[in-house]
Amino acid sequence: MEGRPADDSVLIARAVRGDSAAYEEIVQRYQQVAFRTAYVVTGSAPDAEDAAQEAFVKAFRALDRFRPDAPFRPWLLRIVANEARNRVRSSGRRQHLELRLAEGFRPGDAAPSPEAVAVAADERRRLLAMVNALSGDDRLVISCRYFLELSSEETAAALGVPEGTVKSRLSRALARLRPRVQEAANA
């Protein structure tokens, strides 16, 4: 088994028994998705850091009450998102989440022409601008599903709503985005 990552359930069982390395591995495994989930909820990196940090502590404290047969990631993300929402509520304001494109991003396609690269970058920029222009709720559900690549269950946990609500919210958000994208493509 050397070199193969342990299952979450194995790590959790070890952490509950007092194995610090096991929980450290869990933190390392999920810190990026936890932080980014908190970021899309708060729209603020410092708030996201505080929320994720507190969530890891709370999750650790509640670990012995975690159901071993349940998936860990949605459970953790629910705690993270709750912490993030509490921070938004307590500060009385939600930062406008403005997603940006990474400078110099190159997709994995083999040697595209400079023109193709420019066109693709322009299309990405336009699409992201349209996402950024959506309402907060639409942007949040799209960010969770497509940018963080969360499952329906995880998105529901992050949004604090039932899975069915995620599907309807996502469908409505896409319905609002689609005509804008088509209009831009036809222009």
Binding site: Q31, E49, F56, R100, A102, L127, I142
Partner: peptide, 16 residues
Amino acid sequence: LTALAPALEWPSTPNF
């Protein structure tokens, strides 16, 4: 939208 994901810039993840 899925193809956009890897092109996004995120704040760097702190080490918790």
